[in-house]
Design a protein around this nucleic acid. Structure first.
Lengths: 189, 189
DNA sequence: GTCTATAAAAAGATAGAC
DNA sequence: GTCTATCTTTTTATAGAC
């Protein structure tokens, strides 16, 4: 469409506002004001507030799904797979911290696409869990509770969006490397 | 006051709703319906919607501040202190998962108490950072980037509220112990 | 593509009866 | 302590002029 660029801009600005206050607390007037136009004018480019949220969340969720798919297709060992998952999260959170915020904190406000998002998320977590379990089975990973390991890793990776924008002096490769050491090898001397 | 018990109940139910949809998306009518009364009746017990959020967040933030204070007062080594911080988070998240959700995701909707909350949070993080740095200085903790270690630990601990309610078969002591092993000693064999 | 005007619904909160 | 009724403001979204 002709208005695709303007629409992309609206979605990007909306994601930024959603990160600051959350989807429900951001009004179409807030968004319009930031864009420098009136609220009614937004509707020439987007269908609804809800459609903006869908655009943001679904595109990132699919990006994670595709990333996991690539990782699974490779024949590397479990620790290699975990390192690739860490890099995947660092890359996506670096590129789109605002969108990651919406995915993490506003997914429950999805309407039509809620079940689709939940399916993608459950699949992702299940694949992650299997990688950890395989690592335990072949003695690459300590025999701790799988759910606690999964929770611990995912919590850190899912929070990257909060933290990456504040630490711009660390590049993606350095951050992924540092995270890999800390998450996998621990912090104890 | 005579209505203190009813007020406590309202705050508790509100925290539960806030966890599901966030502060902004929960209406006074939603809250009233869950309580089995009309919205207007709520105002006989609470001052405003905002005062409910304040009650939830400030009490937990002060609990963390007090817990950190106790930990600092002890003369244990850095790893001991980290383990006590882990237990502190497990205890509070187990006791009040709903309130932890509000503290983590709705603090930005605080009005009068926003700066007070931010001061407590900054203090907490600064104390946490100093414990990690001291551990690095005396060779208890690996010489990795302090900010990445702090971020990684805090991300996991702050997300406990999402996860604890789903895993009721793990008691607090077991969870704290398992988390301690994973976060401090890593998962690599 | 943006505007003004406005519709229709939903929000937080209060007044006063019971 | 809860109700009905209502006020005031705010919200998403549409219609139609420019």
């Amino acid at each position: 469409m002709k208005t695709e660029n303007r629409k992309t801009e609206i979605v990007r600005v909306a994601a930024h506002l959603f990160k600051e206050k959350g989807y429900s607390a951001v009004t179409m007037r807030d968004l319009a004001k930031t864009m420098g136009i009136k609220a009614a004018s937004l509707y020439n480019h987007i269908e609804s507030k809800q459609s903006i949220l869908q655009d943001i969340i679904v595109s990132i969720a699919e990006e994670f799904t595709q990333g996991m798919s690539s990782i699974l297709a490779e024949s590397s060992n479990s620790i290699d797979k975990l390192n690739k998952i860490i890099s995947l999260h660092v890359t996506i959170a670096s590129k789109n911290a605002d969108g990651m915020a919406a995915l993490n904190t506003d997914w429950m406000h999805l309407e039509d696409k809620l079940n689709y998002y939940l399916d993608l998320r459950n699949s992702y977590e299940e694949n992650f869990r299997k990688i950890i379990q395989a690592g335990i089975d072949n003695n690459e990973i300590k025999n701790e509770n799988v759910e606690v390991i999964l929770f611990s890793l995912l919590s850190t990776l899912r929070s990257l969006y909060l933290w990456i924008p504040k630490k711009e002096n660390l590049n993606e490769a350095q951050l992924a490397s540092s995270l890999s050491h800390i998450l996998i090898k621990g912090i104890n001397t």
